[in-house]
Design a protein around this nucleic acid. Structure first.
Lengths: 158, 158, 158, 158
DNA sequence: TTTT
DNA sequence: TTTT
């Protein structure tokens, strides 16, 4: 259940291959960045301008496995998810990072997986179990603490 | 024009009264925070849990004026907008904050404005000009540098 | 799984009390209509105009029970769902009706249920199981044939 | 302005080339159909099932011109718009058809326009003027009556 | 810091 | 760091 709505919809390209990690439980989680670009004409100079926004996305569980298998740098994807701002500690100071926890994903490339991958049953799109129904908090989709973890999550109450 | 989609939809309550500031041009901008709450039942203990997410929202231009006039702490609102991560400098270090630039807003309280405000033409809902059509970048919706600004924006290329 | 995205988001008011019916299996389904209104200023005459759109919404399963219990004529709701156009027969002719199958619902009234209803665990909001994961087609959310059914569904391949 | 929210988001493929028509004013409008497909596993038989939903979409104005130029049968697109149910008369009987009036569009094919079309400034994506701000009703986006019009719109109060 |  |  939710009080309120917290929904994000993105279509963009991956900035790098997804990084897949695993929880001790065996559950996967993949991290990636997605670029969306706005272009506009400057009212003063009349020149074409553009700005690219980079989004941190987290694919929990089975979605993480699929992302790791079929998405790569440059892949065009649709993702639907929710915003979550996590705090972590850096040099004794609290920092924040805002991520999109993905709940639904669609691959939009003409030839996903390089074009020759066979179309498995779970390929191409996948929806996470509805967070509202899950007995486990969607919150647990956060990256597992790992040696190469970008953030020290130890003191975050996942 | 945009390459990609960058869309956020929120329904939640304001954590405090919006703060309205003005650009030298006279354009308004309002900042607020919106809370959305997820609840779930812990699979281990079976107890009810909940987590609240706080979103930084920016109402540019006319939307900022309306937000300043009609929204207040506790107001329930629908907002639609796009994600933007801004960087700012703190103690010589680069920090980031992710905001939702609002493009559409709906007041969801039964009696907005306390119940006695007359229903002006611009009240209750408002859509920003489509960013894609605007000759000015939606980017200029960022908070104007001000004495009490939470972030030092001076070196950010708005 | 889905190939493509089929998503509808509405905020509006119910035109009448939801009609709850039951499948032989015991599963509930509720039907309702939701109004959304657009207003604009006529470019010629300068007068304020408005047009109301009526949406047929279908609340399957547990959502149907909740809708039947807590929503009534005039209730303000947020619904998220997907479009489905059903065909039915009238006087030997094929007719079509487009409905929104609700997957997520939020009550937006200040005092839902009239203000005195006790806050049950399932009240206020509910998400349907993710259709993509369900072993049963979301398609089965269609209204059960009934004596007072508005449409003769018998020859529709649900 | 709007009271309520009426939003549709689709990703799918065009069932046929868009049909472009023109109002006496010179404004264009394009009609197309978009397919979205759901697949699921039948709980009884265990077999894979699928159902395709067809959506009637209307691209008003400049979007209609772009759709006519760059979209064709099979094109994959993202559209965002709003629902509108129109009535028309057939054999003296009132019929209804539900359409999606497109306000934002993104072409998702790897090589739009066949791959050799030069990238004009207005290509690839386009947002309609925000309906809420427009002095002209978005309503006027309805297909112009024409000799080959699928519906007799003459008695519909556009 | 909101809300139910 | 992506993409057009």
């Amino acid at each position: 259940m939710a009080r309120g709505v917290n929904k994000v919809i993105l279509i963009g390209n991956l900035g790098k291959d997804p990084e897949v990690r695993y929880f001790p439980s065996g559950d996967a989680v993949a991290n990636a960045t997605i670029a969306t670009t706005e272009t506009w004409k400057d009212k003063q100079s009349g020149e074409q301008k553009e700005a690219t926004e980079w989004h941190n996305v987290v694919f929990p569980g089975k979605l993480g496995e699929i992302a790791g298998k079929y998405l790569k740098k440059g892949s065009k994807v649709y993702v639907e998810g929710s915003l979550r701002t996590r705090s972590y500690d850096k040099d004794g100071q609290k920092r924040y990072v805002t991520e999109i926890r993905v709940q639904d994903m669609q691959m939009l490339d003409g030839k996903p997986g390089g074009g020759s991958a066979s179309m498995g049953e779970e390929r191409g799109s996948y929806s996470a179990p509805s967070p509202s129904r899950s007995s486990a908090p969607a919150r647990s989709a956060a990256p597992a603490p790992a040696a190469d973890a970008p953030f020290e999550d130890d003191d975050i109450p996942f």
